[in-house]
Simulated scan of single mutants.
Amino acid sequence: MSTIVETVSNDIIQALKNDQLTLPSLPEVALQVRDIAEQEDSTVAQLTQVISRDAALSARIIRVVNSPLLRAAQDVKGLPMAVSRLGINYTSNLAIGLAMEQMFQATSEMIEKRMRSLWQLTGQISSWASVIAAHTKLMPTDEAMLAGLIHRIGALPILTYAEERDDLIQDNITLGKIIDRLHGPLGTAILEKWEFSEGLAAVPKLYRKTDREILEPDCAGLITIANLVANKDQTTGWGSIDWQKVPMFKTFQLPMDRDAELWDELAEKVQAHKVGI
């Protein structure tokens, strides 16, 4: 590993240990949505009122409800009907996930480009996770969607750190190596700070462990499979991994064959679902 990768990685790790690393805060609307969802006596009307203050978020939730994955016989035209159809928990997870997009912004053009690319990537994995969850019926689709959107959240503080260093902004390869090395533990630290559930908080640090053996389906395992399937036609990175050595396919009752017809069928649903995310 190059000296600069080692030095910067150690600096970031040390800053995290000393509480000197600025971790991103969950957007205000996401906090409000979660607070309402966690109250036992919360109502659809209360949740609708909070979400309706953000017109863009409201429109996207309606779009997701009308996507092929969730569409019912009658199209949803308003937020109250969308929240009623989804339910409080599903709407909460969806709103939290979608609200996080506003965090993927930077002042540097180069870092901004990386953040946009990162959000698009997590959106793709989120769509795959949602579609796979809907197919297997082994996990809630809203939890799968949220797991996909947060699995690389640990890259955000690294990119924010890089904005202060011209050498990193101009060196995509080095920056990429630092992100690969640190985004897992940083992501879990962020999600623990946000008080996410243990299963969701563990996703960033576990999803790249493709040989992990689990008895029951979990969020991290689903995101592992989503990354593998999304990149099954590639020859490097996720695409170079031997599916026969990934025991989680059996846990999720999914074929280990890259050429199985199921993946083409689900890919069509993913393309339609990405319109909402």
Rank of each mutant, 00 (worst) to 15 (best):
A202S: 12
S108R: 01
L262S: 00
Q74E: 14
D54M: 10
N89V: 13
I277R: 03
A162N: 04
K77R: 11
A106F: 10
G221F: 07
R63T: 15
M139N: 06
G276F: 10
V8P: 05
P68D: 01
L228K: 07
I111W: 07
I153P: 01
G237M: 08
M110H: 13
I96M: 13
A226T: 01
L228H: 09
V44E: 15
M110D: 15
P24M: 11
T122E: 12
L200K: 00
V203Q: 05
A95V: 12
G154R: 00
L121W: 02
T136F: 13
T7E: 00
T122C: 07
T136D: 06
L79Q: 04
V270F: 08
V131F: 05
N66Y: 14
L200S: 08
R152M: 11
S67W: 07
S92F: 12
L86R: 02
Q244G: 03
D11A: 10
N66D: 05
I13S: 13
R60Q: 15
R114S: 06
K209G: 09
G237P: 03
S25E: 15
D11M: 11
P27N: 04
G221K: 07
L215W: 06
S52T: 12
F249M: 11
T122G: 02
N10L: 08
A202G: 06
G154P: 02
M139S: 09
L200Y: 06
T224A: 15
D75L: 14
E112V: 03
K17A: 13
Q170P: 02
K193M: 03
S52R: 14
A162S: 05
E213W: 06
Q49A: 15
R152L: 08
L98V: 09
D19W: 03
A15L: 12
L16F: 01
M145I: 10
E143G: 10
G221T: 09
M256Q: 14
W243D: 02
T236M: 11
I36V: 07
A133F: 00
L186V: 05
V275K: 15
P157C: 01
E198F: 10
Q244M: 07
N10E: 14
Q20S: 11
M110G: 13
P157D: 06
K17G: 09
D218T: 07
W263Q: 01
P24V: 11
H135P: 03
E195H: 07
R53I: 11
Q20R: 13
D75E: 10
G123M: 04
V203A: 05
K113P: 00
V229L: 10
Q271A: 15
E268M: 03
R208H: 14
T43Y: 01
D35G: 09
